[in-house]
Simulated scan of single mutants.
Amino acid sequence: MNALSIAVLLVGLLAVLVLGGYALHLWRRVWAQQRAFAAAESERQQRLGADLRILAGSLLDEQLPLIEGAIRIKVLLDNYDIQLSSHAYCQVFHTLFDATSGIPTHAGWKALTAVEKRQHEKHFSELELQHKAAARKAARWLLDEGLQQPLAHAC
């Protein structure tokens, strides 16, 4: 082997080592980002779980109107764990959400006439009479069992 071949071989080996080191650096950044994402997701799940516990407790203590509580719980459940949200106990939250989805909120509610508001409020009362027991039972189940199980095995 001549000197030129050895020099080319050494330059190639050096290039491989430099590129390998850079690849390792990039992989470490990817792994750090994955750890950060997992930590953020875990924190998000804990926060959603705590919010669900507060809402379910408030619904049971009647500190929160049934319809509003059911809507909020349904939305949080969908973001917390879709399998838990699909559980048979939680279907009442979906039912109430669907039954009220066409009703305007915020500025839309303020723009309604008094007659329209009374019609919606009558509908709310009917829904509450029809679903109050099931919603309370579902909220109790969430507090006692649903939110106690690991996410992967919630259902």
Rank of each mutant, 00 (worst) to 15 (best):
H106E: 15
R72D: 11
Q34S: 09
S5D: 15
A99Q: 09
R136A: 10
Q148I: 09
Q149T: 04
L84W: 04
L17D: 11
A111I: 00
W31D: 15
S42V: 04
H123I: 08
Y22T: 11
E145H: 05
A32P: 08
D78C: 10
L143W: 05
T105S: 11
H87T: 06
I54Q: 11
L112A: 03
R72N: 04
D51M: 14
G49H: 02
R47Y: 08
G12K: 05
A70S: 12
E128G: 03
Y22A: 10
H131A: 01
G49A: 04
P150A: 13
L59Q: 00
A114I: 05
A50D: 07
R44I: 07
Q46R: 09
G102F: 01
V8Y: 10
N2H: 12
R35S: 09
I67K: 06
N79P: 00
L112P: 00
L142V: 02
I67M: 06
Q46S: 12
D61F: 09
S125F: 11
T100K: 02
S101N: 11
R47H: 06
A107H: 02
V115A: 08
C90D: 08
K110A: 13
P65A: 15
H25A: 14
Q46L: 15
L60K: 08
L60E: 08
I54D: 04
V11M: 11
L64C: 12
E62L: 06
S85Q: 07
A38M: 08
V30Q: 14
E62P: 00
S86L: 14
V18L: 15
A114K: 06
V18H: 11
G57R: 09
D51N: 13
V8S: 07
H87R: 09
G49D: 02
R28D: 11
G146P: 01
L96P: 04
C90R: 02
V8E: 08
K122H: 08
K132G: 03
L142G: 00
Q34C: 02
M1G: 10
A38D: 06
A56G: 11
G49F: 10
Q91C: 06
A138N: 05
T105G: 00
H87V: 01
G12A: 15
R47Q: 13
L9Y: 05
V30K: 07
V16W: 15
R136G: 03
S5H: 02
G20N: 12
P104N: 14
I73H: 12
L143P: 06
G12Q: 14
L151E: 06
F37Q: 04
Q45C: 10
V92E: 00
P65W: 14
S85Y: 01
A133S: 15
L9V: 07
A138E: 12
R35P: 04
L112R: 13
L127K: 00
V115T: 10
Q91A: 03
P150M: 13
L147W: 04
A39Y: 06
W109D: 15
W109N: 12
W141M: 00
H25E: 14
L9R: 04
Q91T: 10
